[in-house]
Design a protein around this nucleic acid. Structure first.
Lengths: 155, 155
DNA sequence: CCTAGAGTTCAACCTTACTTGAAGTCCTAC
DNA sequence: GTAGGACTTCAAGTAAGGTTGAACTCTAGG
């Protein structure tokens, strides 16, 4: 019979509660995204707050952040393994802002695309859809000229 | 002196007009995303319409599509190397819908996150932010339970 | 005709984000 | 106290999306 409320979680527990494979959890730990204590036998034990930590990783990944940039975000949290409610609130706020930025970027992209379809030019030159920083990840890529086409290029 | 209007583009021309490296263009071609004719000397020559094709690849990538799924989209285009205006209009429409879906997904995510912050529960359990298919790429990953935390997990 | 710059192929390498397998250890219910 | 599932480490593999380098060929302007 399972304990009703474990003070510490095994890697399997954490995996089950987050849907993330144990191998991925170990991988995150090697990357510094998670820390664990060890049982007397050397097995990992996680704090309950690590569930939330993993959840944040998943959300951030959905937003296109690399694990590295997520790590940077986590650096704003105290090293103590149980971040406070206020810590998480700040991170959540940051995420909300990021999400809103992405929404604006996508809305813009949609509108440009719509007007291109509407006007029928399809040259998209006049629209000049640039690489409007709506992707969160910075992969070190230089700017790309999106849809840098010209009307004379029409088939 | 450059010709004012080339009927065909070299790989360098295409690279310059799209901002995509020649190595990437060749890579796309190996993946079937582009096709080219060859000069008498065996060099690639692209149609002007390929500029638009590459532009679409860039947009789709921004939306998180894999090159493979972009290829699938392109299968709806005629094999003739110069798709019609109407062909592109349909693709554009599809993209617009994809973008709108993503906007809705993100709006939803933001709202959930906001209400979590607002109510102060931060448990996010009640919010149940699932993996609401707002990322276009399907990487063959199973569903993940996002923020499957419970109030009792609060630090 | 010559030459520099642009193009060619092919194999190897890179990063991100993991997974898989081998070989062995821990934990816990019976 | 023992079976077997969960856990350990470490090395190697995978997939996407390219980049880099070597060694060589085309092409175009002068």
């Amino acid at each position: 019979m399972r304990k009703v409320k474990e003070p510490q979680l095994t890697i399997g527990d954490l995996s089950e509660r987050t849907g993330v494979a144990t191998s991925a959890i170990r991988f995150y730990e090697t990357k510094g995204l998670l820390t664990s204590t060890r049982s007397s036998g050397g097995q990992r034990r996680y704090a309950r707050s690590d569930i939330r930590r993993v959840s944040f990783i998943l959300i951030a990944q959905r937003l296109g952040f690399t694990l590295h940039s997520i790590l940077e975000s986590f650096r704003s949290l105290p090293d103590s393994r149980t971040p406070t409610k206020r810590n998480w609130e700040r991170l959540s706020q940051d995420f909300r802002l990021q999400i809103e930025e992405r929404i604006l970027g996508l809305t813009d992209l949609r509108d440009r695309l719509t007007s291109c379809i509407g006007c029928g030019c399809l040259s998209l030159k006049s629209c000049q859809i640039y690489n409007s920083n709506d992707r969160a990840q910075d992969l070190g890529e230089g700017p790309r000229y999106l849809l840098g086409d010209s009307p004379s290029d029409l088939p």
